[in-house]
Design a binder for these strands. Sequence first.
DNA 1: CTGAAAGCGCTTACAG
DNA 2: CTGAAAGCGCTTACAG
Lengths: 304, 304
Amino acid sequence: MTLNDVAAATGVSRATVSFVLNDDHEQRISAATRERVKQAARELGYVPHGVARALREGTSRTVVLTIDEGLEGHYSHSYVHGLDAELRAHAYVLLVRYGHHTPQTTQQLLDVIAPRAVIAFGETYLTGHELEDAGGGWRDGLAAHSALQVRHLVEHGHTRIALAVPEGGSPLAATRLKFTGQAARDLGIPVPDSFAAPQEPAACAEAVAAHLDRRPEVTAIAAFNDDVALRVLAALRDLGRRVPEDVAVIGFDDNGYGAFTTPGLTTIAIDAEAHGRLSARLALRLDTSGLLPPPARVVVRASV
Amino acid sequence: MTLNDVAAATGVSRATVSFVLNDDHEQRISAATRERVKQAARELGYVPHGVARALREGTSRTVVLTIDEGLEGHYSHSYVHGLDAELRAHAYVLLVRYGHHTPQTTQQLLDVIAPRAVIAFGETYLTGHELEDAGGGWRDGLAAHSALQVRHLVEHGHTRIALAVPEGGSPLAATRLKFTGQAARDLGIPVPDSFAAPQEPAACAEAVAAHLDRRPEVTAIAAFNDDVALRVLAALRDLGRRVPEDVAVIGFDDNGYGAFTTPGLTTIAIDAEAHGRLSARLALRLDTSGLLPPPARVVVRASV
DNA sequence: CTGAAAGCGCTTACAG
DNA sequence: CTGAAAGCGCTTACAG
């Protein structure tokens, strides 16, 4: 089923069919032909061939999201959901590419399917663009969420805080550290030190113990995310420290599993759907006004 | 940078360039020209335009994996990893599409980027193809893994088992139930009954209590996956039943979070990378021999 | 108001 | 051994 078939069935030229199907109002085509063409297209089940169109227009009706290893989580899922919904509404299809991404692999993507845009997940955070763009992270982005985490601790009387980050380092760790420090200054408490929490339980317990030895004044640990928080919680249990009496722990980006530990993990829930929708509009160069990401919430369980 | 540029730079025709770059041995082209062309292509940084090629060949160098909602987990991650690696090795790029998939959305995908293949995640399980294809699930697929779960329980003296599935139903639940029943028959124990475990804690506790009332002889619960197992574990704790003394619990598809509960969750770890590689070769119609998925392993913690 | 033509970048029979 | 030509399906100046 091609344009040619529709043209033949209607008795007009291919160009005319293209014009009416693309609603080109520069061309004055009689209402009658318009209707006949549309009718025929419908009856024949004509669907434009995306590859041909992409060759002609230079770009396909797709957007690719690249997600680097280690960046997946609850946030990314919800982000993908919003991105997908918004793109779909504009007749674009979202395709996700996993793995490690370099300028070369991105170029390859462009060469292979010529997407309208390729979005690197987390890029706005990594480049710091988020702070300037669209109202910025201090209102409803990573900065605001980081601040909420610190604030909850402060509201519960904690002023000496440590930040636990994944061992091996997440690309986002430096950014989080910066925002957390900034939030601490704004709240008038000392800027938190950070330490790495290894995957392996014994190593993690050691790391937690070492940090607590070095900073005996610390009464609360803010985690980079829930995975880290869960490891820290287990370490504290193995170390015989009571949570939250001896040390409080708060997670970040609620993944749901904090409900199953003893004590339950208090954490920050982020709804990233609106962020995803925002990215979609940015990628399509559409108006982004009226898109208000909901604020993050504290999920109160028992670890603070 | 197009074929034309390379041809111009070398002083041969576009066809010749295409022939040497695609290693067409039907054509007898002098070693000298071959070298000159390749050299020029390298120097100019020529990369074939995937969209043009796709238009000509009818299919692009991509494979799309569709993942329906609710099918994500540790298994799917590891599967995606293997699929990606294998496809990459054959110069294909893997693109993942999320959301709910219907024949229409799949057709749309075909129309938009003409992928070489679209793989529906879990399809081999859902259609039951897995059992016939490539050695089959009883050796190293879902059937074998389901059997391992039951066997571990039986080896620990349990003969009356219940299967806990997600409320709302996973597309895979029926398949799992079938395999579990089959495994039970093979091991000479009664075929397990199943019950749905709701997300909400109170409702889940109620469901677990109700099932245990109805089937007081049950001494062990096999879960559809770790998420369900974790909920069941919490329910049992809220119900005041000791695990594993009163009731044993075993998960499926280790997601790592079972390490943080008390007691720790015993579960089945599945390495799906080889399954992903297998799918890649199947999609590319390549030889699949020599690909041996490693067997699943029991991760012993404390809940059995 | 509508159609013939060019061209996006490639591959591959076909003809020398 | 190598090149001219057709054609994949579309869009869009351009000419009537």
